[in-house]
Design a binder for these strands. Sequence first.
DNA 1: AAATGAGCCAACCGCCAAGTC
DNA 2: CGACTTGGCGGTTGGCTCATT
Length: 318
Amino acid sequence: MAVLWKGSSSSPCDWPEATVTTVSDADDDAAAAAELRRGPWTVEEDAVLAGHVAAHGEGRWNELACAAGLRRTGKSCRLRWLNYLRPGVRRGGFTPREQLLVLDLHSRWGNRWSRIAAHLPGRTDNEVKNYWRTRVQKHARQLGCAVGSRQFNDAVRNLWVPRLLERIHADDSAAAAAADADADASRCCYSASPSHDELSSSHPAHRNAAPITGDDCARAPSPDVSSVVTGSSWSREASPTSQLFKSSSSTVEGCSTSTETEQCQNGCSSSATSVDMFDESWSELLARAIHDDDAEFGSGETGDSWWSLEDIWEQPLY
DNA sequence: AAATGAGCCAACCGCCAAGTC
DNA sequence: CGACTTGGCGGTTGGCTCATT
């Protein structure tokens, strides 16, 4: 059963023949375990892989695995590099800005994770996928509706997105205030302006930001947050919170992104506090609202009056 | 303190398309 | 043109961590 490598031509290197050809069933597991490593990568393996990629570049992963002496498949090496070792990979929770982008791009493209991830600097398709499955789908389950359903889209459009916009605005304001404070301090104590690193580290929300390389900013043009709002596939006009959108939109447009570079800077370096906007209380509230007015909500209407916006805004953010 | 369950994430699997021989 | 290799993608799973019982 275990064909570790499909014949000699595909053998990545000159391992003993038994390691690259079919082995007897009785010895399958033992041979596989002995020759091809699986499971979590060790620190040593990471160092070897990173060193080889740094020295020889990406690509030809089977050859690379062989040359590096890694008992891993080329696929495994590639995945480890792209998802974990590659410079600029961002880790940790998604920022509100990233959540907004994921929600919007998924509404446009569906499960095109790599395509979505391309617009989230430093994020991998795997991470976006995991975020969607663990967070977004969980909330959909709590609401008793499917992702992509009318109910879910309404919840996203009318609840989640406004909250994200609000949070983005708050984060930007806090960052601006922090920058102002640092500027004042630097005027008092230093002649030079604070560096970007100093600005970033001065803000609590930035302390956990992963190092970002220039590569991240060289990616495909990303829809910035303002385009997410103004060009969204969510129909704002039909929303009961259209006025709210309008004000939030102008706020975001005014304070953040208008160019690709700025989007990249925001997405790359301003790692705001990661929160899941759709916390339990929200889900419960929504679930109750849906339950209380099931007929109307399930009928495909836009649901303009099936909750009190004031009630929602009184819910705590966290 | 041990057992259990849920959440999360890294890694693997299978399939497909493009490139190469 | 067909076989094969490689890289990429989306779906799935195994295992770790943490909270709850």
